[in-house]
């Protein structure tokens, strides 16, 4: 199964994929669509991706986490049109103990945001549409 999906992300399936009898510590992170961005009301958004590279980069990130910590990682990123509250990304890291699970989960989501070629087009309540540029919004007070 690929890391990108057009369908709603099934967290239970990811938890099951990472679970094992010897992994009692399971950390998860969900990124969900917010109804605001830089003070503007957001109605919905579209995610698009450079599919083959996004798949490859997600695979590299998961493999890095699994080699750095004793964890099993499950990762999905949604593409297509999403509504407010929909889950855009989900990470599960399961390990024998919580320290490694938390560390690996944090590593995976940070690297996904930094390296995976995915783009977000936001549709605002005022009728305008814009590509999100996180490097530009760094200047704003969050």
């Amino acid at each position: 199964m690929g890391f990108l999906t057009h369908r709603p992300i099934d967290l239970a399936a990811l938890l099951a994929a990472a679970a094992a009898p010897d992994r009692g510590g399971v950390a998860s992170f969900l990124g969900q669509v917010r109804n605001h961005h830089s003070g503007r009301a957001v109605l919905r958004l579209d995610y698009s991706a450079y599919g083959p590279m996004a798949e490859a980069e997600c695979g590299r990130i998961a493999a890095e986490a699994e080699s750095r910590w004793n964890v099993a990682v499950a990762l999905r990123h949604r593409v297509g049109s999403l509504a407010i509250g929909d889950t855009a990304v989900a990470v599960v890291a399961a390990s024998a103990h919580r320290e490694e699970a938390f560390a690996a989960c944090r590593y995976v989501i940070e690297e996904v945001k930094r390296r995976v070629p995915v783009w977000k087009r936001e549709f605002y309540a005022d009728g305008t549409v814009a590509w999100v540029d996180p490097t530009a919004t760094l200047q704003h007070v969050q």
């Binding site: 990124g31 945001k113 390296r115 995976v116 070629p117 995915v118 996180p134």
Partner: peptide, 10 residues
């Protein structure tokens, strides 16, 4: 060769 706008995943 791909030219990538600022990434906005997650």
């Amino acid at each position: 060769i791909a030219i990538l706008p600022p990434l906005a995943g997650g």
